[in-house]
């Protein structure tokens, strides 16, 4: 699925839920479904700063596409990690870099979970873009 299709799917899923409790429940479910991160990846060097909870992110390039891995000790935040993985994982770095996270705005999550709340959504997005930038630069070099 393309980034756009994934984003549309998520927007549809969330817009069917009126109550914030239900939206949070969905995020919690997505977080739970994401599963545990490999202990080798869940280490301090992969921690993202700027979050009230602990967040770990890692990425690798597989056949030209970026695979993203992540985890958090807070479930709603882990749900956000899952959202970003759904949208951006298994995509080419240049596609990631040219796909703004409009869906967050559309499902209202950026308003409810603004960066000031220290959920680190902004920091996570930035990290994904940094990974993509690094892989893109690496590909050019090669």
């Amino acid at each position: 699925m393309s980034v756009k299709e994934e984003q549309d799917k998520i927007v549809k899923e969330f817009s069917e839920l009126e109550e914030w409790d239900d939206k949070y429940s969905l995020l919690i479910k997505m977080g739970k479904d994401l599963g545990e991160l490999d202990p080798e990846i869940k280490v301090d060097k992969n921690k993202i700063s700027g979050c009230q909870s602990q967040v770990w992110m890692h990425a690798k390039l597989d056949d030209g596409k970026m695979q993203i891995f992540g985890d958090s000790d807070a479930m709603i935040v882990k749900g956000l990690v899952a959202l970003l993985i759904k949208v951006y994982s298994n995509q080419k770095p240049e596609v990631i870099l040219s796909s703004p996270p409009n869906f967050l705005n559309e499902i209202g999550i950026d308003k409810h979970l603004s960066p000031t709340r220290k959920n680190g959504l902004g920091a996570m997005l930035k990290q994904i873009q940094l990974f993509a930038l690094a892989f893109k630069a690496l590909a050019k070099k090669e």
Binding site: Y24, I28, D73, A74, M75, I76, V77, N119
Partner: peptide, 21 residues
């Protein structure tokens, strides 16, 4: 089994302000 961050975020929807962290 529940991170304080999740507690604070969810009860905020009920207008309840607590501190987490």
């Amino acid at each position: 089994g529940i991170h304080p961050y999740d507690i604070g975020t969810i009860i905020d929807t009920d207008g309840i302000a607590i501190r987490t962290g």
